[in-house]
Amino acid sequence: MGMIGEFKEFIARGSVVDLAVGVVIGAAFGKIVTALVDGIVMPLVGVLMGGVSVSDWKLVLKPETVDAAGATVAEVAIRYGLLIQTLIDFLLIAFVIFVFLKAYNRLRKPDATAAPAEEVLLLREIRDALKR
């Protein structure tokens, strides 16, 4: 089988397609949560912290200055507010995915009254035959 045939077989597997769908849906979901954090959560946190946007929080190491030629020299700052905002974004995405998977696994839980698999029945017969 040539490389193209192997590639077609690889793509035709259900798990690869499921993974691709999961990645696309996950990316779209990440955008939704980012919009939630940027548009609702962080403005509320900013208001509680005195009206300053969290993404603007920074530690200025060297303030903006003007050199001898009159050109502006940009400030050097550690923008830790962006990190905090991104961490909150990540935690919300992780929490929602956790809740979703927990509900999904609860729905997929196998029925306790289902008959055992054929392999289990055969192994039980072998075990019982060996006991005699």
Score class of each variant (00 low, 15 high):
Val41His: 09
Ile93Asn: 04
Leu44Asp: 00
Glu64Val: 06
Arg79Tyr: 14
Gln85Pro: 00
Gly30Thr: 05
Asn105Val: 09
Tyr104Met: 06
Leu122Tyr: 12
Ile11His: 04
Gly39Thr: 04
Leu48Arg: 05
Val47Glu: 01
Asp111Asn: 02
Phe98Leu: 11
Gly39Cys: 09
Gln85Val: 15
Tyr80Trp: 13
Phe29Val: 12
Val23Trp: 07
Ala71Pro: 03
Arg124Ser: 12
Glu118Gly: 14
Ile40Met: 06
Glu9Leu: 07
Asp18Gln: 09
Arg13Val: 06
Tyr104Asn: 10
Leu82Pro: 04
Phe29His: 11
Val54Pro: 03
Phe10Trp: 00
Ala71His: 09
Leu87Gln: 02
Leu59Tyr: 07
Ala28Asp: 07
Phe90Gly: 13
Ile93Asp: 05
Gly46Glu: 14
Glu118Pro: 14
Arg13Asn: 03
Leu122Lys: 14
Val16Pro: 00
Val41Pro: 07
Val41Leu: 15
Val76Ile: 04
Met49Arg: 15
Phe7Cys: 00
Arg13Thr: 14
Ala35Phe: 08
Leu101Glu: 11
Val66Trp: 05
Ile84Asp: 01
Ser15Ile: 14
Ile25His: 07
Ile88Asn: 02
Gly5Gln: 04
Lys58Trp: 01
Leu83Thr: 14
Leu123Val: 04
Glu118Val: 13
Pro63Thr: 11
Ser55Trp: 02
Lys109Thr: 09
Leu61Thr: 10
Thr65Lys: 08
Thr113Gln: 11
Ala35Glu: 11
Met42Glu: 09
Leu122Trp: 09
Leu122Ala: 14
Met42Val: 15
Pro110Phe: 05
Tyr104Asp: 02
Ala68Cys: 02
Pro63Met: 14
